[in-house]
Design a protein around this nucleic acid. Structure first.
Length: 772
DNA sequence: CAGTGAGCGAGCTTCCGCTTGACTT
């Protein structure tokens, strides 16, 4: 039995701390919150001054029972949950659920897991700060009220099972607003002139350089007359400006910046980044991965300095502490960094190695010297025009932190290529080689990626490190947005080239609007967004969270009572909820598109029970209307009459094969060929149901038959041994059974199969299981 | 495994922030 029981939030943390504290202390984990508002109703007694109704969730009962047992035996309980609003609330819930004496229970905090920090914490225990706890309760209750009052309005006015909330609804709004900017964007174009020049410098060396004309020409005619002037011009180096500059490293990672860089450099999704980071954390290789702080412990700063000095020399070391500037940061932890800086690499799978190296580089670079660069701008004047060309280049004089890390950015990196310029002299004559004027289009604002949406949310102070990944997944699982690709469209660019006194016109092509793994708002997301903005503009305001955070801070500092804050918010809010329930019509996003010239029937687009559709004819008409689903890349908001009419082309007949008709359609699982009562899926990204030929359809049928043959390992009467996605398995009576390890599936006899079935090592089917 | 699209009414859905595992046809 131990005298001292220490409770922390995370089990990995518990393991580390136990080592620091020694034999007299038992360190255990609460696995986060142990109590929450009841799950299946409002959980707030509005009439009773908003009293919260708490329960211990099913999956936490075991943890709580264990903690109770240990707490009863211990003489002193130390609660070491994080030092932030949520951590304080966890401490209070623990005291109340475990029946601890608030007077003798010791609340301790540390921001870093180092022996020093923990020893200091143990030396200065305090009591639970009830103001901070109340700020958390206000946050929790506000979120519950908003979520559980708004969502039912959507069930009645839009569709069942939808959701709304302080965080998710604003995340969707960002995407919808951006999409509308893109829809409304009209690309402008101008011709940009670049040229190559050569000459001989004062050292007698022949040099070549590329320069750009800062003036853009809106028409081909203007560009042509400029090229004519170039042809009649002589060129001279007019000015050389050399400017020294420095570049500084980025701070070590927080959750949000880790997610952004892992996406840009490694192509990880936000969820993937977190799960790989979790593995590294559990293995003790990195510090905690859910943090908003860029702070490093003194120990970390010192070891980083040692490693940098040993590896690169003292001149590369520069110890620095970064200030966290993100809105609403609570800084309960350190920045994300390697636990041991002297480990440049770790064992583990490929993703773990890659992410670790990224974290190592970023953290080490943050403790390294600035890079010194020299930026050079050369102005090239021309005799026949006041316009001049400029060549820019950058030379790194001292690489500093660039030796280990360069931050990536979302903007097109090819735009500002940094060339090394040759030595030229003022007054030097230059002879033009080729001068080209190429048409360039302006681009619409970029669509969000998962990571850039997290960045934006963090800037607005919306969401927390522990919720960024879940937010991204919630708005996708509700169908509000989807991560998709777009092939883009070909676009023609005009090009004028001046060589040897002759101007020739040619055309180039580029792909515009190509997208890879971007977040696209879907129709239901846009409809819900518009409904919420029309009825609850305050909550959908980008500053709503920042505003209520200020009030939570006032509760935390004891200036305001939490019940007062909630009641001030709830009164008007509840009134708006009731009004919109009473007065608003159901929202379907319906649009009249025109009349079908073939039948004279009206064509409309709207949200149906099962998704966005176009409709030909009316329900009140003589004939039942025809329906067709929109394609994934179409929106109710932008679909045209022509596009709608094309959708009615399916299902279509594509010929006969083995005396049976083949028809192509789009079903529950995507486009298919139907033949003799069987279905064959079209290849995604290859086949298009609107244009696929009969020949290709026959190919698909044959291919599928061939594949099915290989799936069967053996047939033993009514028992089949099959090859599946997760290896071989046995199928009998529509149930699948796992084959024990070390068994050769090819040699299985019927008797052996029956024995396996008898044992009942069933694989649980996910089919028919209810979603949680 | 390859639909549906109306309307009625029962009973269900839903929030945000702390934490980990469980889980594969």
């Amino acid at each position: 039995m131990t005298d001292n029981l220490v409770i922390v939030e995370s089990p990995a943390k518990a393991k580390t701390i136990e080592k620091f504290l020694g034999k007299d202390y038992t360190v255990v984990s609460s696995f986060g919150h142990i109590r929450d508002l009841v799950r299946n109703n409002l959980g707030v007694e509005v009439e009773n001054n908003f009293a919260p109704v708490y329960e211990i969730p099913e999956d936490k009962k075991k943890v709580v029972a264990e903690l109770r047992k240990l707490a009863d035996k211990a003489t002193t309980v130390w609660i070491a949950s994080d030092e932030d609003r949520e951590g304080e609330a966890i401490a209070w819930h623990l005291i109340s659920v475990l029946g601890l004496d608030p007077g003798t229970t010791r609340r301790i905090v540390f921001h870093e897991i180092t022996k020093d920090a923990i020893t200091r914490a143990v030396e200065s225990p305090r009591q639970v700060d009830m103001n901070l706890v109340n700020a958390q309760q206000a946050r929790r209750i506000l979120d519950r009220l908003v979520g559980f009052e708004l969502s039912p309005v959507l069930w009645k006015k839009v569709q069942p099972s939808l959701s709304a909330g302080r965080v998710q609804s604003v995340a969707v709004r960002l995407l919808v607003d951006r999409e509308r900017e893109i829809i409304g964007f009209i690309a402008d174009s101008a011709l940009r002139v670049t040229g190559t020049f050569s000459g001989t410098n004062s050292e007698g060396t022949d040099v070549q350089l590329k320069a750009e004309c800062p003036k853009k020409f809106s028409t081909e005619g203007e560009a042509r007359s400029f090229l004519e002037k170039c042809d009649a011009s002589s060129f001279t180096v007019e000015n050389i400006i050399v400017k020294p500059g420095t570049r500084s490293p980025a701070p070590p990672f927080t959750t949000s910046t880790l997610q952004q860089e892992a996406y840009r450099k490694l192509g990880f999704s936000v969820a993937q980044t977190m799960s790989v980071a979790q593995k590294l954390y559990e293995a003790g290789k990195i510090t905690y991965m859910r943090t908003d702080s860029t702070n490093l412990s003194t120990l970390a700063l010192n070891t980083a300095r040692e490693v940098i000095t040993n590896e690169y020399g003292a001149g590369y070391s520069r110890t620095r502490q970064f200030k966290t500037h993100s809105r609403g940061a609570q800084e309960a932890h350190e920045a994300i960094r390697p636990t041991y800086f002297d480990r440049k690499e770790v064992t583990g799978n490929n993703n773990e190695k890659k992410l670790y190296e990224l974290i190592w580089r970023r953290a080490i670079a943050s403790q390294m010297a600035d890079a010194r660069v020299e930026k050079t701008t050369i102005n090239i004047g021309m005799s026949a025009s006041p316009v001049s060309f400029t060549a820019t280049g950058e030379v790194v004089l001292f690489d500093g932190f660039l030796k280990v890390y360069t931050e990536s950015f979302d903007i097109n990196a090819a735009e500002d290529e940094k060339a090394i310029l040759p030595r030229v002299d003022k007054g030097m004559k230059l002879i033009p080689g080729t001068i080209t004027a190429l048409q360039r289009f302006t681009s619409p604002p970029p669509r969000y990626t998962e990571a850039s949406l997290v960045k934006k949310l963090e800037e607005l102070g919306i969401g927390r490190p522990s919720t960024y990944a879940p937010i991204i997944s919630t708005i996708q699982s509700r169908g509000y947005v989807a991560r998709e690709d777009r092939p883009g469209e070909k676009r023609t660019l005009a090009q004028l080239t001046l060589t040897k006194g002759k101007i020739t016109r040619s055309e180039k092509t580029e792909i515009a609007g190509k997208e890879k793994s971007k977040l696209f708002p879907k129709d239901i997301g846009m409809i819900v967004n518009d409904f919420l903005i029309a009825n609850f503009p305050d909550i959908l305001d980008y500053n709503f969270t920042a505003d209520v955070e200020k009030e939570f801070d006032e509760i935390a500092s004891g200036e305001v009572k939490w019940e007062k804050m909630i009641s001030t918010f709830y009164g008007p809010f509840r009134k708006t909820v009731d009004e919109s329930l009473a007065t608003r019509a159901k929202m379907t996003g319906a649009r009249q598109l025109g009349t079908d010239p073939a039948t004279g029937l009206p064509v409309a687009a709207k949200m149906s029970r099962f998704g966005p559709v176009v409709q030909l004819g009316e329900a009140s008409g003589e004939q039942k209307p025809r329906f067709a689903n929109l394609r994934r890349d179409q929106l109710l908001e932008t679909i045209t009459l022509e596009e709608a009419l094309a959708l009615f082309a399916l299902p279509r007949a594509v010929g006969t094969f083995e005396d049976s008709e083949m028809t192509v359609g789009v079903g529950k699982f995507g486009p298919y060929v139907k033949h003799a009562g069987k279905f064959y899926s079209l290849k995604r990204g290859v086949d298009d149901p609107y244009t696929i030929t009969g020949e290709r359809a026959i190919d698909l049928i044959r291919e599928k038959r061939e594949g099915d043959k290989q799936k069967v390992i053996s047939e033993l009467g009514d028992i089949m041994v099959l090859n599946g996605r997760y290896g071989p398995y046995i199928m009998h009576d529509k149930t699948n059974y796992r084959i024990p390890k070390g068994t050769d599936p090819h040699k299985l006899t019927r008797e052996e199969c029956l024995a396996i079935i008898e044992k009942g090592t069933k694989t649980k089917s996910t089919r028919g299981r209810k979603k949680k």
